[in-house]
């Protein structure tokens, strides 16, 4: 390898890094309540109206937008490297990158749309 083009990886890496912090700080408590304690009936779930009011608060919308967007890109970047390294699919690098980051982009669009219409 000679002195060549520097990689554009920093753009996805910084999104991965921000998402990594958000996943670590916030996702465990989300899945703990919405995925386990509420459905299992161990904690009383707030009503539909309460949940709707919570999500409609402007700060909650901003929070959910940041959380979901960065987490989508975090997952996309890591799923890509998992498929390249753990599953050794290096020959499919371009397709995998397109699907992962493309998927994150689609996720972001849905996030914006749902948060605006909820």
């Amino acid at each position: 390898m000679s002195a060549g083009k520097r990689s554009n990886e920093p753009i996805v890496w910084i999104l991965f890094g921000m998402g990594g912090f958000l996943v670590a700080f916030f996702l465990p408590v989300h899945v703990l309540f919405y995925g386990l304690l509420f459905p299992a009936g161990m904690v009383h779930a707030p009503s539909y109206q309460q949940t709707l009011a919570l999500v409609r608060h402007p700060l909650a919308r901003v929070y959910l937008f940041a959380l979901l967007t960065f987490c989508f890109f975090h997952a996309a970047h890591r799923m890509r490297s998992t498929m390249l390294d753990v599953l050794n699919l290096r020959h499919l690098n371009t397709v995998i990158a397109f699907l992962c980051y493309g998927g994150a982009l689609v996720g972001t669009v849905f996030t914006v749309w749902l948060l605006m219409t909820v």
């Binding site: 390898m1 000679s2 002195a3 083009k5 520097r6 990689s7 990886e9 890496w13 390249l84």
Partner: peptide, 17 residues
């Protein structure tokens, strides 16, 4: 700058997971 030209290519640091 010389080192960044080599090491910040994909086969440099970005290959590391």
């Amino acid at each position: 700058e010389d080192r960044l030209d080599i090491v910040s290519q994909h086969e440099g640091i970005w290959d590391c997971t």
